[in-house]
Nucleic acid binder design. Structure first.
Lengths: 151, 151
DNA sequence: CGATATTGCTCAGTATGCTGACTATCAGTA
DNA sequence: TACTGATAGTCAGCATACTGAGCAATATCG
């Protein structure tokens, strides 16, 4: 009988669980109330001004039904704006606000610190290797989830 | 500006996302409707007959408020039984049913297949290395989440 | 041009996960 | 034994994620 610790699926869940907890703790300590998911969305909107929701979802591999709520909350916090696209009346264009830009800038150190903490059990070389293997496994499984990465 | 693919937190989320999708697909194809979380709970209850909810939660690193719903659904499906403990009237003892045992046995090939599929981009050696690194990072971060592993 | 397919988005429903609060019970101690 | 603290479980509330359905608008093709 296989142990939980021999199951990549179980290990994935545990690592994710710790990663989220560390992120929330670091960002919270910096005085902000942003989830990992909201942070990734905000950073991606900043890097791609005016993109629509489906494109955003593809860039960070979120489900299209999940992104709606995430965007709602970012708008609610005043960090982004959502407006109808002039070219396609089905689509909504997303834009970061000045406040969103400010928040992103101030949060960055906490986010980077969180990434270090979640790898604190590994050497620098091991951390790199873990990320390489995750990237490789993810690339091979990209199409297996409902929300694949789309570049 | 760091890319998402350089963030262990983001990679953790993506890998877990794929792992869950693969698990549900494989188990669903085998004719069962069990989530990864429900499967781990069921297998752990079988291996530790009569354990209480807090102990179960500790063995698989679930939050005690999450385990309640998971157990509800396993009971609902007739796979486990929950009854008051004779020694501690606060506690509930959990026991797998015959039907739970049967389900577990029939599901096992699908679960193992799922674990292979989620590593299909890696060689056997790389898969082992990924699991080793995840275990190491998880061990170092165990206390950082609200639901640490308790053996 | 008009029928059809596709796309962007939303919604209802279900299942994790977490925070924080609460009840009931148990354990240790003054 | 009475008080105090810890523990087992539940609940309400919020935030991901997903399934499946549906609406409105756009694209495509005969």
């Amino acid at each position: 009988m296989k142990d939980n610790n021999d199951m990549p699926g179980h290990l994935a869940r545990r690592f994710q669980q710790i990663a989220v907890a560390v992120f929330l703790a670091e960002v919270g300590e910096a005085g902000f109330d942003l989830t990992p998911v909201q942070y990734a969305a905000l950073a991606t909107i900043k890097a791609n001004p005016g993109l629509d929701q489906v494109t955003l979802a593809g860039l960070i591999a979120y489900d299209r039904t999940t992104i709606t709520g995430v965007i709602d909350r970012l708008v609610q916090k005043g960090l982004i704006e959502r407006r109808a696209s002039p070219r396609d009346r089905r689509a909504r264009e997303l834009e970061i606000t000045d406040e969103g830009r400010r928040a992103l800038r101030k949060i960055t150190p906490a986010v980077e610190s969180a990434q270090r903490i979640m790898l604190r059990g590994l050497s620098a070389k091991e951390g790199e290797e873990l990320m390489r293997l995750l990237r490789k496994a993810i690339a091979a499984g990209n199409e297996l989830s409902r929300a694949p990465l789309r570049e």
